[in-house]
Design a protein around this nucleic acid. Structure first.
Length: 429
DNA sequence: TCTGGGGTCCTTAGTCCA
DNA sequence: TCTGTGGACTAAGGACCC
């Protein structure tokens, strides 16, 4: 049984840290291959339809950034070293980094492989004030992993995250400029720090919201803070308006949450070329549904809702979902639901991406008690399948449905196969 | 110009039911 | 019995984040 542990809400003292690894994936690759040090290194985007997952600061000098289409990145810097991602290795490194953080406080909330919030108010009483802990954490990660990170310290999570940005290396006119590594926003100076920043610095202000805000004459966080909450709510919706108004005024009472349960699990893939055959797509849906069900079982979760995502050649994206009579982690049921949803989609225009997801997740412990005999036998069979895969690899066994249809479009499902189709290591070929 | 994969949260609209 | 209302739930899509 997983229990969520929550820290206390902020109390006005500098007690929150945000730790963010610098160009994490690229830095891990450079550590593995020291001859790449100082060179522009790009992780991901090795295929024709991929995007950049991470870029070293030397690559950023050329204007390359994450989420940039790989075709464009190559045009900007043809001499950059493009590497496929090695997600499982990054995961291992991340676990060791998180362990360093857990040495300081049990109140660690990972946001992704390379980022976490810490509530150090308790630890500070024993180990020293938050800014000192920030410096110590940074030194320890550098010493143990030979990887640089930046740390922000402030009185709230959100402010600590903004502080980290200030501490990071940046790209100047003459190249890479080293960052301070640690930045502290002292209690009482939050609004001085916050209000000159562009509104896009706020969590939740992306391109669409930014456009709407500019139409209202809002450029900076200060502009936003001086607007009535009701006007923001009218322009952006109740929840977003309220949230932005609070953040712009430095209010963020979210505690650090440890062991957060996932809300959804999904698997999606962009194909090297658009698929038009229902049979081929059914096989892909079966493969992905099987992978999703396996991750549900690994997490000890069952799902109430199965979601199918389809992106067509023109980038139009639709989702179709269905809620099951009983929550499940069975590949048979997830795949059947996904294929049922797919049957209602006209795939003739050509499908660029297909995804299968599971949501409405609950812990499996309650469901186990109510299984019938047939379900128990099926569960046992799935456990054996999982064990075979653990031993011989993800592609060693799978649903028969997954091998029908058009073959050879891509390699079998591989957790490291991310960041787009046709990931080929240019160094090896 | 070309836009991955894995998530979270919010809004809107429709349906069912008390 | 009819009508209105509001909550819960479901489905679909959009925006955003790393």
């Amino acid at each position: 049984m997983t229990a969520e542990i929550r820290g206390r809400p902020p109390d006005g003292t500098v007690g929150f840290l945000h730790v963010d690894m610098d160009a994490f994936y690229a830095a891990v690759e450079i550590r593995r291959r020291p001859e790449l040090r100082g060179k522009p290194v790009v992780v991901g985007g090795t295929g024709s339809r991929g995007v950049v997952a991470a870029a070293s600061y030397e690559a950023r000098v050329f204007g390359i950034h994450s989420a940039m289409p790989s075709v464009r990145a190559r045009r900007l810097c043809p001499q950059a070293v493009f590497l496929p991602g090695d997600h499982s290795h990054y995961g291992e490194v991340s676990e060791r980094v998180m362990a360093v953080l857990a040495d300081v406080t049990p109140l660690v909330e990972p946001l992704s492989l390379d980022e976490a919030f810490l509530d150090v108010r308790g630890a500070a009483r024993l180990l020293g004030p938050a800014p000192e802990l920030a410096v110590r954490i940074r030194g320890r990660i550098l010493e143990q992993e030979q990887l640089a990170c930046s740390v922000g310290a402030a009185s709230t999570k959100f402010m600590a995250k903004l502080a980290t940005e200030r501490a990071k290396p940046r790209v100047g006119p003459s190249g890479v400029v080293r960052g301070s590594g640690v930045h502290v926003v002292e209690a009482g100076t939050e609004l001085d720090f916050l209000h000159p920043l562009p509104a896009t610095a706020l969590f939740g202000v992306g391109p669409a919201t930014s456009r709407r805000l500019r139409r209202l004459g809002v450029e900076t966080v200060g502009d936003l803070a001086s607007m009535p909450e009701t006007s923001l709510a009218a322009a952006l919706g109740t929840a977003a308006g309220r949230q932005l108004h609070r953040l712009a005024n430095g209010i963020d009472d979210r505690p650090v949450v440890v062991d957060r349960l996932p809300k959804s699990i999904s698997h999606e893939e962009t194909f090297a070329r658009d698929l038009r055959s229902h049979a081929a797509l059914e096989a892909e849906a079966a493969r992905m549904g099987d992978a999703v069900a396996r991750r549900l079982r690994e997490s000890g979760l069952v799902a109430r809702t199965v979601v199918l995502k389809v992106r067509f050649g023109d980038f139009e994206t639709i989702t179709r979902s269905t809620t099951l009579p009983d929550p499940t982690d069975s590949a048979r049921e997830v795949v059947a639901a996904a294929r049922g949803l797919l049957a209602g989609v006209d795939v003739a225009p050509g499908v660029r991406l297909l995804g299968v997801g599971a949501s409405g997740l609950v812990e499996n412990s309650a469901r186990q008690l109510s299984l019938t005999g047939g379900d128990r036998a099926h569960d046992a069979a799935q456990r054996v399948t999982d064990q075979i895969r653990d031993r011989f690899g993800a592609s060693s066994i799978g649903p028969a449905a997954a091998v029908r249809g058009e073959r050879g479009l891509r390699s079998p499902l591989d957790p490291d196969q991310r960041w787009g189709p046709d990931a080929v290591d240019p160094q090896s070929g």
